[in-house]
């Protein structure tokens, strides 16, 4: 039981780290603002995957009515799932705000290239 949990989780964690690093790379290396926003989202998804994975311990999903409860029941930790839901919502808010800003920037600057949007510098 522990070994399967271990191997399942390793895949999860590696994937989460990979997504986070990919997101960070996108934010640094790409100059198109929309790609940068995508990078921000990818970081968020990686972290969400990570949070959900921390709760896994091989049990069932934590959904049942009160009458089904008995002592010794084995279910996964519900708190990370709550955290992940909240984090997904926050990620959606960040995306919405960022995209609204990009639309407004495009109307004024006529470009979404980050290297050209630099009127505040020095």
């Amino acid at each position: 039981m522990d070994a399967t949990i271990h191997s399942v989780l390793s895949v999860n964690y590696v994937a989460a780290i990979f997504l986070i690093v990919l997101g960070l790379y996108t934010v640094v290396a790409k100059t198109n603002l929309i790609k940068i926003i995508l990078g921000l989202s990818i970081i968020d998804y990686g972290i969400n995957l990570f949070i959900v994975s921390t709760g896994f311990n091989g049990g069932t999903s934590p959904q049942f009515t009160l009458s089904e409860l008995f002592s010794g029941q084995y279910f996964v930790d519900p708190v990370p799932q709550a955290l992940t839901l909240t984090s997904i919502v926050i990620g959606a808010c960040v995306d919405a705000m960022a995209l609204a800003l990009v639309i407004a920037i495009y109307k004024r600057y006529k470009t979404v290239d980050a290297t050209e949007i630099r009127r505040l510098h020095g």
Binding site: L24, L33, I37, I43, A98, L101, V102, A104, R108, R118
Partner: peptide, 14 residues
């Protein structure tokens, strides 16, 4: 203002 807000949003989100 939009440019500054964009930079703040990206770095702040990270």
């Amino acid at each position: 203002a939009l440019e500054a807000a964009m930079k703040y949003l990206v770095i702040g989100s990270v």
